[in-house]
Amino acid sequence: MKTAKKYMFNPGNVSKLSDLPTLDHELAKDPAHNKKLLAKVASEIGELQWTLYAEKKQSLLVVFQALDAAGKDGVIRHVLDEVSPQGVTTVSFKQPSSNEKERDFLWRVHLRTPARGEFTIFNRSHYEDVLVARVHELVPKAVWKKRFELINQFENLLAQECNTRVIKFYLHMSPDVQLARFKDRLTDESKNWKITEADYNEREYWDKYIEAFQETLDRTSTSHAPWFVVPADDKISRNLLVAQIIRDTLKDMNPQYPSPAADLNAVRARYHEAEIKAKATRQKKA
């Protein structure tokens, strides 16, 4: 769990989020090695996820938040490289629908939390309601301020009642790297669909977003649902760090294959009978 401890956000121990590095220079030195290691870690995640699915006693919820182009989609794609489609769900929360707006801000989120045995990833999440809602003044300050404690209670409920482990990632990127990635989206035809004028409009709110993330991490990084601040300027090392923290979390959860529900001796006897019949059938045909 060394990686997790290094990048876990501890409220009160950090003066400013903006002081944290957006690039792990030492780790980013050897991209070839990191790619090989990432493949190994992704395979380990796949094995642990399948055991979690078979066990059906606990679940994992992974939350990703970041500014545009920090790499949420890319990280998720690499983390899920070796998992089974069974028991894994990715949810992307967009602007709430009219139906969702008529309910509390956590209603639509609670509907998508993992059942026992499941591994769920939130690409953006309930945290939009203390980030975007705050920066763009969609609700009064008195409203979004109350939401921090409601979120803590919600995540504690998942841990206590549903045996759900919650881990949250803030992908920490520099404004210069964001601009470079926006340029890449303009020049690479396969990425044109990902860029809009709204992306540039949001850059005007950079400082307000950092301020909002700062308070969000300060108020909601808890022992049962910690935040991890992952340097995101280098894509390969970013992916590796996230994968290692997820792998280590699953290891700590220690899922176990359940005991067989059937009488294995009886099943073996039935198999032996079927084997004899199949052999006799083959001999007749011969």
Rank of each mutant, 00 (worst) to 15 (best):
N99V: 14
E100C: 10
K101H: 08
K101Q: 15
E102N: 14
E102G: 12
R103S: 10
R103K: 15
D104R: 07
F105E: 08
L106Y: 06
W107C: 01
W107E: 03
W107V: 03
W107Q: 05
R108Y: 08
R108E: 06
R108C: 08
V109F: 10
V109G: 00
V109A: 07
H110F: 11
H110P: 04
L111W: 04
T113N: 12
T113H: 11
P114M: 13
A115V: 10
R116I: 08
G117H: 06
F119T: 12
T120I: 06
F122E: 04
F122R: 03
N123G: 02
N123F: 00
R124T: 05
S125D: 02
S125N: 02
H126L: 02
H126S: 00
H126E: 05
Y127D: 04
Y127R: 00
Y127M: 03
D129P: 05
D129Y: 04
D129E: 11
V130S: 00
L131Q: 04
L131I: 09
L131T: 04
V132R: 00
V132Q: 01
V132T: 02
V132N: 04
V132E: 01
A133L: 02
A133W: 06
V135K: 08
H136I: 03
H136A: 06
E137D: 11
E137N: 11
E137C: 01
L138C: 00
V139D: 01
V139L: 04
K141Y: 09
K141D: 09
K141V: 13
W144T: 01
K145G: 00
K145W: 09
K146F: 05
K146W: 05
R147T: 10
R147Y: 09
F148V: 08
F148E: 08
L150A: 15
F154C: 11
F154L: 12
F154T: 09
E155G: 11
N156S: 12
N156Q: 14
L158I: 08
Q160F: 08
Q160I: 12
E161R: 15
C162Q: 14
C162A: 14
N163L: 10
N163E: 12
